[in-house]
């Protein structure tokens, strides 16, 4: 099947021709498959922010192409706004973009820009506010009167309301406490299952990526470093640590046990999975 987005030899150079010239992305190629929940992971400076701003045409490639449904998005620069409706991008700390008097109006901003009829806007606003787990009585409240976690959900609803084919979120859990993180991640998983549309989660936390996504792309220094299912990527935990990423503690324990000669598969990333392996091992014969 044709990928929904194809990144083809993308290079982006900031401040070209000045002494500050630097390439944030260098000859990067990757694919985003239709309907998948993809995780993109990399530390600060790995090029992940630059990459995602290319996917909806906020940045223009210095070299290379971005194809959406097989079409180069820059084939007709006049249509770039259409691309932004098809590829929804939620920035880091999105609550800082809220500006309207009510939650309803703020969420309606995107659909309104699309020029949709009033009834359709109304339907989408209500549906997406519900999708992020907020009640209908929130609609008439000022977004600034909400708690931090609620504000973030309103901002995410604002992008969901455009009903994009691809939803990309840059560090949607940054700065939230564990409960807030889990709330956001579970609403994203539910959104993906319900709509079956493509979701891309960008993060520097291996833990949350592993628990939510079906496939992971690891970026490092402006290029793709690894690619595969969570299990495939976590099997190379030592390599991940070498590129400055934090591996979940449970993966570290599994690797430590594996190195001590315990016969387990170290590519785990949940406590339950490791627990199951170890208890099975104990039921059989101890190897150590």
């Amino acid at each position: 099947m044709e990928p929904i987005i194809r990144v083809d030899h993308l290079t982006h150079t900031y401040s070209a021709g000045t002494p500050f010239q630097r390439s944030a992305v260098q000859d990067m190629s990757l694919e985003i498959r239709r309907g998948e929940f993809l995780g993109i992971i990399g530390h600060t400076g790995s090029g992940k922010s630059t990459l995602i701003q290319h996917l909806n045409g906020l940045l223009k490639p210095t070299e290379g192409h971005i194809c959406l449904n097989g079409q180069d998005i820059w084939a007709d620069p006049k249509k770039i706004r259409q691309v932004r409706f098809q590829v929804g991008l939620v920035f880091q700390y999105p609550e800082y973009q809220l500006f309207e008097e009510t939650v309803y109006k703020d969420v309606a901003f995107g659909p309104k820009n699309m020029g949709l009829p009033q009834e359709e806007i109304d339907r989408r606003v209500r549906a997406s506010v519900r999708a992020v787990g907020l009640s209908d009585e929130m609609l008439e409240k000022s977004p600034f009167a909400l708690s931090g976690g609620q504000k973030r959900r309103v901002a995410i609803a604002g992008v969901m309301a455009m009903e994009p084919e691809v939803l990309i979120l840059d560090e949607p859990t940054a700065g939230l406490d564990p409960r807030g993180c889990e709330d956001i991640l579970s609403l994203l998983r539910a959104y993906h299952t319900r709509r079956g549309s493509t979701v891309v989660l960008v993060s520097h936390s291996m833990e949350e990526i592993a628990r939510s996504t079906q496939r992971i792309i690891v970026l490092d220094r402006g290029g793709v470093r690894m690619e595969g299912t969570p299990a495939q990527v976590f099997a190379r935990a030592r390599e991940l640590e070498a590129v400055g990423l934090d591996v979940p503690q449970v993966t570290k324990i599994a690797h430590a046990l594996h190195e001590k000669g315990v016969a387990i598969d170290p590519a785990v990333y949940t406590v339950e999975a490791l627990q199951k392996q170890l208890l099975a091992l104990k039921g059989g014969r101890a190897v150590c």
Partner: peptide
């Protein structure tokens, strides 16, 4: 960038429309 990602248009329209388009930037 965030408002552009929601389809905000800062580049077209008459002076009045352009001024109005600044609200989503200035308020935040």
């Amino acid at each position: 960038s965030a408002q552009k990602a929601r389809g905000a248009d800062f580049e077209s329209g008459n002076i009045f429309q352009r001024a109005k388009a600044l609200v989503p930037i200035l308020v935040p």
